[in-house]
């Protein structure tokens, strides 16, 4: 698995051009794996609705409702993956690939931002309600 910094650098390149749908989906999965590992959880190898990224998102959101803020981003990644792979000759394929790269980049920025600010304590959706258990 690549480091978050490497994933970010790769996505920087891909948002400027055309990424392959399979690689973009995998980068998205890796970002979610980072989130899970940072929280001491082993990423599952299961699939949900046929996609590992959706299973990983569900796993990541368990006990962390604010993580649902990237649920639609994950689903859009899957949707664009399907569009690109099922209609490879479609005239919009280049545009769809660029859009999929931007969606993957958003997932990366959102999750890496959450990981960064989680260390700052109580703050917006990036934090756990520390007093919930008090």
């Amino acid at each position: 698995m690549s480091t978050l910094a490497d994933i970010g650098a790769r996505l920087d390149t891909l948002t400027a051009g055309e990424g392959e749908a399979g690689e973009l989906l995998e980068l998205g999965e890796q970002v979610l794996e980072h989130w899970l590992q940072a929280h001491g959880r082993q990423p599952l190898d299961e699939r949900r609705e046929g996609f590992r990224i959706l299973a990983l998102h569900r796993q990541g959101a368990a006990g962390e409702p604010s993580f649902n803020a990237c649920r639609e981003t994950c689903r859009e990644l899957v949707y664009h993956y399907n569009l690109i792979t099922m209609q490879p000759d479609h005239p919009d394929t280049a545009r769809r690939k660029r859009m999929m790269a931007l969606i993957a980049n958003h997932l990366f920025l959102f999750i890496s931002g959450k990981l960064q600010t989680a260390g700052l304590g109580e703050f917006c959706c990036s934090s756990r309600p520390l007093r919930a258990e008090a």
């Binding site: 990237c70 664009h80 920025l109 959102f110 917006c124 959706c125």
Partner: peptide
């Protein structure tokens, strides 16, 4: 596709 995505406001 990013109509409900986080803008990082907070």
């Amino acid at each position: 596709p990013l109509k409900t995505a986080c803008c990082g406001g907070a």
